[in-house]
Simulated assay, not measured.
Amino acid sequence: MSTIFFTSDHHFGHKNILKFSERPFADVAEMDEALIQRWNEKIKPEDEVYHLGDVGLASSGKLRKILDRLHGKIYLINGNHEKSAQACHTRFEWIKDYYELVVKDDEFERGEQLIVLFHYALREWNASHWGTYHLYGHSHGTLPDIDTSLSFDIGVDCHDFYPLSYEEVKAIMKTKNWKPPFEKENR
């Protein structure tokens, strides 16, 4: 049985991300190896991974070698640094700018949970007032989390450089203080 995972902003091969995001690695080679190791610790070959952009800034040849080492079926949401990833398009199940994923989950009223996947943070998204989740990347943990919003930064800089499973995402969302707008007290 496969598991669904989410992640973003690996920036494989990107030297400057070490400085920009204050990543705790000595160099790009160490970073890339750590990111590959942490990915493969959690993800099995049959798992599905939704990557929300900025896979890598290495040459397409180098990036392809990295992608071939990663477990799972990878679905890519375009970020703002995808030139090399697009050249490796055959490694991805698909590449899209935006996606609305429906996950079967009996804990929800309709037996499913909708998750809006986009590289950038949104303030509102499809059915956000009904409890739809929104996952994003791009900001590398620089945007403050909004406790009353069912969204958060799924990027590796926010999660000890690991992807998160659907169950981990759901657990984080359960800690939020979100209330449906139609249930708020009248003012």
Rank of each mutant, 00 (worst) to 15 (best):
G56Y: 12
F182K: 01
S2C: 04
I4Y: 08
V55P: 08
E109Q: 09
Y98H: 13
T142D: 12
W39A: 10
L117T: 02
E100M: 12
D160G: 01
W94D: 09
A87K: 15
L164C: 04
K179C: 05
D105T: 00
G53C: 11
W130Q: 09
F108L: 10
L52T: 05
V169I: 12
K62E: 15
I95Y: 14
V103I: 14
D68V: 05
F161S: 05
K65V: 07
R91W: 12
L63C: 03
K83T: 14
F6C: 03
Y120I: 07
I36R: 00
F25V: 05
K62S: 13
G56V: 05
K42W: 05
L101H: 03
F152H: 03
D153T: 11
F5Q: 00
G53P: 13
K73P: 00
H14C: 11
S151I: 01
S2A: 13
A26S: 14
E112H: 12
E30F: 07
E41N: 14
Y120E: 14
M1V: 03
K174I: 02
L67W: 09
L35K: 04
F20V: 06
P24A: 07
I17Q: 02
G111N: 04
K42L: 11
V49Y: 11
L117E: 01
F25H: 08
E168M: 09
K44R: 15
W178Y: 13
N78L: 15
F92P: 00
E183H: 07
L101N: 08
F118Y: 15
H119L: 11
